[in-house]
Design a protein around this nucleic acid. Structure first.
Lengths: 210, 210
DNA sequence: TGTACATCAGTGAACGCGCGTTCACTGATGTAC
DNA sequence: TGTACATCAGTGAACGCGCGTTCACTGATGTAC
């Protein structure tokens, strides 16, 4: 950073846009703090003056949104890859859970922004509804539906339980693991992998019909 | 707020301390935003000038810590009350889970600060280790140990599973539910209670020996 | 092939803001004599 | 009972800071003629 940089030739203004996004993301990860990602800090990291950011982004919020949006896409692709490896619904569910936790542990600050921050800081396009409709979520939901149809997943309780509630519940469990690991790294976890395995094991065990 | 207030007589300076804490907490809940709790805003809410805060708290961080500490105590008491109602380990586990989620839903901003914020903003006295040692956590752990000893809780998998890992896992599950509800209130949950019931039901089901 | 010019990437200086915190102070109040 | 005084709750003004954002600009670059 703080590299001496020359101005891009005429048709190449777009390049700075990507550099800005990359710098904002790196700053986010390095400082592990959303507040540290200021327009000025980003401009400094790219080696440019603050006003030039405004050539590419209408304001700070939109810049952060875009950084965030990229992460949502990455998580989605990551989960889709995990899901693609399996045809068996139960295996797919387990693999997704594992992949989800892995993603969060690998990108804690990204995860924090996506799922642990204030709702109004999340870009609308990547908002809650879209997550439920346009991501790996519906794929997982389809697996859960198949698992129920095959009689492999219980629906005996609670009253009114359905595939959607089960899928959301699965999300809650893996999110719980992930966000707790992200928020409380200093907690005396003991063997982190054992905790993850135990949670996923029990979660899956609780899903299965006897 | 902004009430005209007279100075307290000589021995009663301590009173302002409590008013400051109460105002800071109310501000936190009302604005649903940690950043909105500034020294100036708190002083204004109490009806006092900013410097007088410093008579009672060394700095802003310590003020926030103390607000936070009060919440930890409240959660602890709340969970202890839920635990006290039961002697049966399985019932106790279920009741604690429910109580935990209820607390988070009732005090979302407090919950956010305690368990969803940056680790370095949590006061040391109420830090992770203390939570594991000095709160309802050990009580729950004891119940889990009894459940295992009674043969009611499974320990057949994963390899090396123990009461501590199970208890942490339980925490992760209820935290997942709670923090997701806090972070994503606009998510199309459908029937929130159904999601909660489904998660707790499956979680418990997955714990039990067959 | 040479030149005038529009384009466009990026600059430099400044704005107003709210923040945490410090400092020297004021003036009512309880107390000691 | 009266008064001088130490105590202490709280004030008013100011500090320096980093922030997001705006504005008028500069000067290199590609292009049209």
């Amino acid at each position: 950073m703080n590299v001496v940089r020359s101005r891009r030739p005429k048709g190449h203004g777009e390049e700075l846009r990507h550099e800005i996004l990359a710098a904002a993301e790196q700053l986010l990860v390095e400082t592990a703090s959303e507040e540290a990602v200021s327009i000025r800090a980003v401009a400094d990291a790219v080696g440019v003056t603050p006003p030039s950011i405004y050539r590419h982004f209408p304001d700070k919020q939109n810049l952060l949104f875009e950084v965030c949006a990229i992460q949502f896409t990455r998580l989605d692709e990551w989960l889709a890859a995990a899901l693609a490896d399996h045809d068996d619904p139960v295996e797919a569910i387990q693999a997704t859970g594992r992949a989800y936790v892995e993603f969060g542990r690998a990108h804690p600050e990204h995860y924090r922004i996506m799922f642990m921050g204030r709702a109004d800081l999340t870009p609308e396009q990547y908002d809650d509804e879209v997550f439920a409709e346009g991501s790996a979520f519906p794929t997982l939901l389809a697996f859960v539906e198949r698992g129920i149809a095959d009689g492999r997943l219980r629906t005996d309780s609670p009253a009114g339980v359905n595939a959607f509630a089960i899928t959301v519940s699965l999300w809650a469990v893996v999110h719980g693991l992930t966000s707790l690991l992200v928020a409380k790294p200093a907690f005396p976890w003991g063997d982190v992998d054992l905790v993850i395995d135990t949670t996923l094991d029990r979660c899956l065990h609780g899903l299965l019909a006897r």
